[in-house]
Design a protein around this nucleic acid. Structure first.
Lengths: 154, 154
DNA sequence: CCAAATTTGTTTGTATACGAATGATACGCT
DNA sequence: AGCGTATCATTCGTATACAAACAAATTTGG
């Protein structure tokens, strides 16, 4: 109770030293930006979640691949991509086949329904990106995407 | 099978028109940037998850508040903040008390252990932010944080 | 003052995420 | 050939996230 609360001390007449303000930390703002994007996505595309959309879009782009490889392409680990594929499979949006030469692998590809759906949704997805970036000017958008990619790559 | 695969068509001699490249979409890169940050966080702070840290840090900042209000401060909905608080409570890092005048409310505050822990972790958390932003120059960092905040706010 | 609307917290159900462990299979290298 | 290692998929456990439905308590509007 007697302990001083709130931000860490601020230097006598200078700038704040090691004050920790949660709402200024990259991680926190990144999470909020992500939340806003997910909300926009959900409001425009109700048929799929973003991870499900990513998996279908990638399949559309590269054709058939193994489950794990698809996971790598969409940045999901083995356990996560499995759940996503399972749910897409349950809706017959993807087809699973055993791999010919490698009996460990499961080859995933789009079903006709999956292809039709993703083709219909691609234009919507572009609008999701646009709406997400709407608070920025075109110039800012270019800068932002460049820096964000740099950050994501490490 | 006979359907053309891959990216959408590209205009005759010009720039790509409405080609959809998943790896260039804001949402996808945001998610990857977030993944990298979470990984850095986990490697430096093993005692708490980012949401748990956020809740404790905010409690440290603002003192006692109701559960839902804390949720708003750290951008988590009622169901999510409840789970986070439950787990912090199970480890005796926070204390829950009934609110005096409003019998619906639950007042959350730091326990002594919670305060000690968060005070010890705050410097580490600053380093997490630094490491996350390490791929950018100081100038780029300033720009990035400004634009990211703009995006997160909407 | 009282009925309606709102707020607070809880619960349930679904969907990511990821570490860790496991079984089956494939591969590298001697 | 054979053995150790690596890969692929699966499973388990834990922890966010959020929509939706609810009960209890409070606030508001007439």
């Amino acid at each position: 109770m007697s302990v001083e609360q709130g931000k860490l001390r601020v230097l006598a007449g200078g700038k704040s030293a090691d004050a920790y303000d949660l709402s200024e930390q990259v991680g926190f703002i990144l999470r909020k930006a992500n939340q806003r994007h997910l909300s926009i996505f959900a409001s425009r595309i109700s048929e799929l979640t973003p991870p499900q959309f990513a998996a279908l879009a990638k399949l559309y782009e590269v054709g058939a691949t193994s489950q794990n490889q698809l996971g790598q392409l969409v940045a999901m680990d083995a356990a996560t991509i499995k759940g996503v594929i399972d749910r897409l499979k349950a809706r017959d949006l993807v087809v699973l086949k055993p791999h010919g030469r490698d009996r460990r692998r499961l080859v995933v590809s789009l079903s006709e329904e999956g292809r039709t759906l993703i083709e219909a949704l691609l234009p919507e997805a572009l609008e999701v990106s646009e709406e997400t970036l709407a608070p920025l000017t075109p110039r800012e958008t270019a800068t932002f995407l460049r820096l964000l990619a740099k950050l994501a790559e490490g």
